[in-house]
């Protein structure tokens, strides 16, 4: 469903992505990990065109993200994205956060979008908070709203950019639980995260990045059981041994 072919990206002289290729099949969950500054977040933002690439090709289903003529707005409306800092709209209630895209992009009526919103918010257990503003919610609650906001658009795939990195430790699980549930329902997901427990549990494959390059791209068990590169071994040792 998502195919990334030999993409490279520069910030001036600095090469953030160096000839990266990978793919995510329909219903697959791929976790992208690696040390900070390795280009993981940049890579995932290229998938829906939030970041342009200078070389290479990305396609999502039949749409070519990197082609000039592609209607990026339309493409993005079909791919959900969840951000590290939630990025809920602070001046709108939870309800309006979810309704905005449904009404302005998908053209749903207020009744339709309300029904969908209430159903999704109930699913993440936040019905009591639906008319509150994001500032009145905890980080974990905000991130669950953000996931619901992305799901409200009925996406064909979901991108997660370090969804738990900005959370207090005790709130990480409530967000991961929602993501696990999504994965088990068969959602196509690409997830940048340091949560190796999550990766082990639901990922079909793990992509390991370092210095803008994809160093490993393997089945989850193979990656954790027997990483090939020294960089990945080193990384896993640091992240798993405490």
């Amino acid at each position: 469903m998502i195919s990334i072919e030999n993409i490279s990206k520069w910030y001036g002289e600095f090469r953030v992505l160096d000839d990266c290729s990978s793919r995510v099949a329909k219903g697959e969950v791929v976790v992208v990990c690696g040390p900070s500054g390795s280009g993981k977040s940049t890579l995932i933002k290229c998938v829906n065109g939030l970041e342009p690439v200078q070389k290479g090709k990305i396609t999502v289903e039949d749409m070519e993200v990197t082609a000039k003529r592609t209607n990026l707005t339309k493409l993005r409306s079909r791919i959900g994205m969840v951000f590290q800092h939630f990025e809920l709209y602070p001046h709108m209630s939870v309800r309006d956060n979810l309704c905005l895209g449904q009404e302005k992009v998908l053209g749903r009526t207020r009744d339709e979008s309300n029904a969908k919103t209430e159903q999704l918010i109930e699913r993440v257990g936040l019905s009591a908070h639906i008319d509150k503003f994001p500032g009145q919610l905890s980080g974990g609650q905000q991130q669950r709203v953000a996931i619901s906001r992305a799901l409200a658009m009925d996406p064909i795939a979901m991108l997660f950019d370090e969804p738990t990195s900005a959370l207090d430790p005790e709130m990480i699980n409530e967000v991961l639980d929602v993501m696990v549930e999504l994965a088990q329902e068969g959602m196509t997901m690409m997830v940048v995260t340091h949560e190796m427990g999550f990766a082990r549990k639901v990922a079909d494959r793990v992509v390991f990045m370092d210095e803008g390059r994809i160093v490993e791209d393997r089945e989850t068990e193979a990656f954790f059981g027997n990483p090939e590169s020294d960089r990945a071994k080193d990384f896993l040792a640091k992240i798993l041994n405490h």
């Binding site: 990026l72 707005t73 493409l75 993005r76 791919i79 990025e87 709209y89 905005l100 991108l159």
Partner: peptide, 29 residues
Amino acid sequence: RKGQVHAGQATGLNYWQIQRYIVLPQAFR
């Protein structure tokens, strides 16, 4: 924050919608 614009873009809102519903209301406040 640029993330607010990204969030709007990721939802499929176009430039004018992002300004009208997300950026300008917060900026004016």
